[in-house]
């Protein structure tokens, strides 16, 4: 990432990942300074072979249009599957580019993982984001693809560090080494999901602080904070209600060291909204805001 390009990005402050529950939480409206959307939730995608591929969900888009008049919107897609060797979906990027022009996202992001597979003209979705092998082959593929993304969409592109429950053996790069190399070679930025880091540190027994020490924090443009819960003996990234307690000190540590962070986004899944009843969303946003003000 060219750091001068990051410096030029607007500092948006503390934001909220938009979900269907957000619209029903008016107390939260006063606490966020921007909204992040998962654009894929606003349209139906008939697939790469379809003549009319993307069809928008009218009521949801109308609500988004209203919100976009009041607050900045940034884009966090789940549909690219940038790590899929058999799929590179330029049609998806065209749709993201259309929405970037429409809503003026300051940046857009997706996940560093793969989930889509194409075989003999048909596509399958693994229904989870799976980890890439951290090696030269993956780096080369990602670097070439990110170059194409940056040609197609003008604003900076960020990749999010992913949750993984299995680790391919004998990888030549550690995760921070791989992220550093990827950003340096490709020019992309990082969406550092501190809860994903906490999930991986918990399940795989490493220190999140050591990970942050190894990571080049100058690449970090956006940070995610969230909560999770346990399932089948693992701690998962379920976005279950409030931010996990262990994530707050990681946020403070990161914001003190990362010079170009432009936004901290709180994510929760709408199915866990009861855990945030009575102003819980606003409380989490205010906690993040207090740390932002102390550190930025």
């Amino acid at each position: 990432m060219e750091f001068a390009r990051l410096q030029a990005l607007p500092a948006l402050g503390v934001g909220l990942l938009l979900n269907p529950d957000t619209l029903a939480s008016p107390e939260a409206e006063r606490a966020y300074e921007y909204l992040e959307i998962i654009p894929d939730r606003f349209w139906l995608d008939a697939g790469t072979a379809a003549h009319t591929r993307h069809r928008e969900l009218g009521p949801s888009v109308a609500a988004l249009d209203s919100l976009a008049e009041c607050v900045p919107i940034v884009c966090h897609s789940i549909g690219l599957s940038i790590g899929s060797a058999s799929v590179f979906d330029t049609g998806h990027l065209e749709q993201i580019a259309r929405w970037q022009r429409r809503y003026g996202f300051a940046w857009h992001s997706d996940h560093l993982a793969f989930s889509r597979l194409a075989e003999h003209g048909t596509e399958v979705n693994a229904a989870v984001t799976l980890p890439l092998t951290r090696d030269e082959e993956s780096l080369a593929m990602l670097t070439e693809r990110i170059a194409r993304i940056q040609t197609q969409i003008e604003v900076p592109f960020l990749l999010e560090n992913n949750v993984y429950f299995v680790i391919p053996p004998d990888e030549p790069y550690s995760e921070p080494e791989f992220l550093n190399a990827l950003c340096r070679r490709s020019g992309c930025g990082l969406l550092l999901d501190l809860h994903n880091l906490h999930v991986n540190a918990t399940n795989h027994g490493f220190a999140a602080e050591a990970f942050l020490d190894e990571l080049d924090l100058r690449q970090v443009v956006e940070i995610h904070v969230a909560g999770g819960d346990e399932l089948a003996g693992f701690y998962t990234d379920s976005h279950a209600g409030p931010v996990a307690a262990a994530v707050w000190p990681l946020l403070e540590r990161t914001l003190r060291a990362a010079p170009w962070v432009r936004g901290v986004t709180f994510e929760y899944h709408e199915s866990y909204a009861p855990l945030l009843a009575g102003g819980g969303v606003a409380r989490e946003l205010q906690k993040a805001r207090a740390i932002w003000e102390r550190c930025c």
């Binding site: 229904a127 299995v166 399940n203 998962t236």
Partner: peptide, 13 residues
């Protein structure tokens, strides 16, 4: 990978 305990939770999710 198949032998790692994390494969079970990946399949469940």
């Amino acid at each position: 990978i198949a032998r790692q305990p994390g494969m079970r939770i990946t399949c469940i999710l």
